[in-house]
Write a protein that binds this DNA or RNA. Structure first.
Lengths: 345, 345
DNA sequence: ATTGGCACTCACCGTGGATGAGTGCCAACA
DNA sequence: TGTTGGCACTCATCCACGGTGAGTGCCAAT
């Protein structure tokens, strides 16, 4: 079994390796860390750590490198998440100040986070499946074209164009708006989708009015669908190129995941947070998502009841304590901004 | 001076180099292309091409590689743009079929183009500076919050949240809507911005109504600004990782440009198109944008009078004829979709 | 449990020779 | 004048080789 000092050795190895990018040997450890024992003793500890597969040697006689499992133990038991420096805190608030609507806040958030960590920053839109539909508006354009606007009480707005089967005048449009509103306003997004689908299976579209309602509902359904599959905002993609050396293979899978979004959404969604709302998914733990060489660090945040995540993606060899601290701090800012200060939305 | 055959040699060098990624020597040329002369003769031609700086040798005794200037001559005088194959054409139409609004069409377009070329595809939104504001709508939410929607006749819709200084009732909102509409509807985006700024410098905001108008106009101005600085839609970013070997340095500047957008917008805007609306900007010609190792190929397209560009970005060592053909074909589809078939928007 | 000692492994580095692709030049030729 | 074969030369690439040093594993002594 690994001793207490053994764990400290693991900690030292992780820290030094993240620092220097080079396999760390027993001698280097006794030099850089005051263990008060000789290199031979450290070697014995390292042999045990290797038995437990927490560290590994790239080649027979070289220093050791943390395994994914080693990083996991480090993150779970050894990492101290130190609070951000005042300078970093003011940096965050400077990024976020003066933002109005949700979109804006989220964009600024990822910018702040990528600035802070030098990694790819990611934020989930608050889940809208449980949000309530608070408004539906129709704006008549020329001819049969109508803009359909859907608003939820979490502050998300969506707009999309519908082409009606017939030209309608103002009173007909008003009737349309009233009917669609009574059908959906006050419902959650999830219920809304159900209502629309139910309605779609009802008898044939005979009258002008019925045809118009059907056309509008089709568009509304698309919009609600978009709400359900919460989206991502990202920044700092270019950082991947800078950190390229940390990826054995290519950064292709990461860029692909960034473009796909769906993969990242699922990954972020499935991560299990600890008591502080913090979560990390390390290296091969992401194998199912094609991201075996990447780590994702995330934190929950609250937005008017809806819960979502903000985090970052980078190489397995990343500075977990500092990144966890940054993510946590940003998540707290976000929660404060989106929940407490209602008027700010 | 470079002879006619000399130019054909240049063509062969470009083609083979793009093909094999390796410097091409005189012997390889006589083997792969039926010039009917010996390698020594080709060597003489190559010496001339080198004098003209159209090709260069990576090291003293190795095959030659086209210079940026060489690619330029190739594109301008030697490249034959062959029409796409039927299979490629059907691929495009399959990508584009069933799309509704502008956003959708553009997203599908870049997907088609990236699929076709394996490069990063880029499309500019049609320029909205000259577009007319056709609608302004206010949607009252709870309390003082109002959604401000601006629509242009080119089909672009923007919505944004405004927080008014006071709570207003329905009639006041209606008055607000009427006032803002008379001020702006029918104007071009450019004129609209001017109107708003002019109005902003007028006397103090005394009444509730005046304060509200000012608040709404501030938001409208932001939206109009967004219209003016036409945006981009992109796809295929991950392809950069696949083609990484073609970039001597790193792909960092490219990823950065993709994230910035502004750089790419300026670049695409400044390119000079030929009679067919096609344009290419090669390697060092992009130095001012920090993209000396990339080439951009683009084509104009029309959308209800507004003109914009669709194109792609990739390594200097790219297949120009095929990429030019793809861009041209996609641009034609786009023009047809956005201009002719009005009802489709 | 810790330590110093020691043999051993192996990546890394610089050297050197062989290989071969490709050039530049020249004299001969049509 | 343009074309050609011949030939010497250059230089990247490959591989084999030995030396160096960081680092390990093991063991006997403390």
């Amino acid at each position: 079994m690994v001793s207490e000092r053994g764990l400290q050795v693991l900690r030292a190895i992780v820290q030094d390796y993240v620092d220097t990018r080079e396999p760390v040997g027993s001698k280097a450890i006794v030099e850089r860390h005051a263990f008060g024992v000789s290199a031979a003793t450290i070697r014995n500890d390292m042999a045990l750590l290797e038995d437990e597969e927490l560290i590994a040697a790239p080649h027979t006689s070289s220093g050791r490198v943390p395994t994914d499992k080693g990083y996991r133990v480090f993150v779970d038991h050894l990492a101290e998440i130190r609070p951000l420096s005042p300078a970093q805190r003011t940096a965050i608030s400077q990024f976020l100040e003066g933002s109005n609507d949700l979109d804006d806040v989220l964009v600024r958030t990822v910018r702040a986070l990528t600035q802070l960590t030098g990694q790819v920053a990611i934020v989930q839109y608050p889940s809208f499946a449980k949000a309530n539909i608070s408004h539906i508006e129709l704006v008549a354009l020329d001819g049969p074209r109508v803009i359909v606007i859907v608003v939820t009480d979490t502050g998300r707005v969506s707009q999309r164009l519908a082409v009606l089967p017939d030209d309608l005048d103002e009173t007909e449009i008003a009737r349309l708006r009233a009917e669609v509103s009574t059908l959906l306003v006050g419902k959650t997004v999830r219920e809304g989708v159900a209502r629309v689908e139910e309605r779609a299976t009802s008898p044939a579209e005979t009258t002008r009015h019925e045809r118009a309602v059907a056309a509008v509902l089709r568009v509304v359904e698309e919009e609600l669908d978009e709400f359900r599959q919460d989206r991502l905002v990202m920044a700092g993609t270019a950082n991947l190129a800078r950190r390229e050396a940390d990826f054995r293979g290519s950064i292709y899978p990461l860029l692909e995941a960034i473009e796909e979004q769906v993969t990242l959404l699922r990954l972020m969604g499935e991560m299990v947070a600890d008591d502080n709302g913090l979560a990390a998914s390390i290296g091969r733990e992401n194998e199912a998502f094609g991201l075996s060489e990447a780590s994702v660090v995330a934190s929950d945040y609250d937005a008017t009841g809806a819960r979502a995540r903000v985090g970052l993606m980078g190489p397995t060899r990343m500075d977990y304590p500092s990144n966890l601290a940054s993510v946590r701090a940003v998540a707290r800012y976000l929660t404060r901004l989106l929940s407490d200060d209602e008027s700010n939305r």
